[in-house]
Write a protein that binds this DNA or RNA. Structure first.
Lengths: 164, 164
DNA sequence: AACAATTAAGTAAGTACTCACGTTTAATAA
DNA sequence: TTATTAAACGTGAGTACTTACTTAATTGTT
């Protein structure tokens, strides 16, 4: 649905069900028939987010070559298309607005990274993994917020730091 | 004011002026006398945020020793007290909810970092600065969101990476 | 008395949500 | 093929309540 766009632009609480209905070109009642709640509508979007997260990570988690795990993690942002920005922006926005903890979704990725850094004999694999994840999250945030940050220079720069 | 706490907990749009008034123990009308708008109330909080940002950075920007600039940047989070978490959480929350660009506030810090990395003969001072700022922002975000992330291990780990 | 600080009681517009009603779809019975 | 039927789809007007904001009256201070 195109309701997503509204949520992404204005946020959850600022987007009324009547606005969503108008934007989607349907009656307001239909939303409640279909999703029961405003919360249900949002939950549907959140669920979609979780599955997109998983398919984004799938490629990395299955990788066995440790250097590839790291390389794919750093370049993961290249795998999301500009047309999906609204969607991802909403995911980040909701994490703040509704205080949803996103740690759980990242856990498989973190484990893969810890494993990879261990194999490469890094001194503190867990910290290395945390650091890299903070970085990915940070760049994604900056991009989606429309920051000035030049991700296209930063990502190659990072790859170099990890000898990739 | 203690209105801040409400904004920080629930967000801007989810916090009504009547709630704020009740929490602050004053009449609702007084808020509008004093701040004119709900937006004015928030702007006051935002302004306070900007000044706290500045005083937090002041120490770093004035530093001449390049290594100290980097060290102080990494350990800047140690300078904010737990009692101020609500305040900072709100600043981060509003950046997402109201799409406020925070780049400008960071610019003096970034310039200090670029300068420091240049003096230390790093290859890409600007990228180094960006990277470090993304880290700081990311760690702060994680802490304020109540993530599991162990910042007390990550910060010393980072210091080590920069030979500090 | 004069003047600012504060309030209680409004207001119109919006909010999430319900419900009685019509319409389309699709499977079965003739 | 048609006719019947039942569910799913969809609507629009209504609900009780909340929203940001106003204003006339009341309080406190000098």
């Amino acid at each position: 649905m195109a309701a997503l766009q509204l949520f992404a632009q204005e946020g959850y609480h600022a987007t009324s069900t009547s606005k969503v209905a108008r934007a989607a070109g349907v009656s307001e009642g239909l939303i409640f028939r279909h999703f029961k709640n405003k919360e249900g509508l949002m939950q549907a979007i959140l669920d979609e987010g979780e599955s997109r997260f998983k398919s984004l990570f799938a490629d990395i988690v299955l990788e066995t070559e440790p250097k590839e795990v790291i390389r794919k993690t750093i370049t993961i942002l290249h795998k999301v298309d500009v047309s999906e920005y609204d969607f991802w922006k909403l995911q980040f926005k909701l994490k703040w607005e509704l205080e949803i903890n996103g740690d759980k979704k990242m856990e498989p990725l973190k484990m893969a990274l810890v494993h990879a850094f261990s194999k490469l004999a890094y001194e503190s694999p867990e910290q290395e993994a945390d650091l890299l994840l903070v970085f990915i999250d940070g760049i994604a945030s900056a991009m989606l917020k429309g920051s000035q940050l030049d991700a296209d220079k930063l990502i190659p720069f990072l790859l170099k730091k990890y000898d990739l």
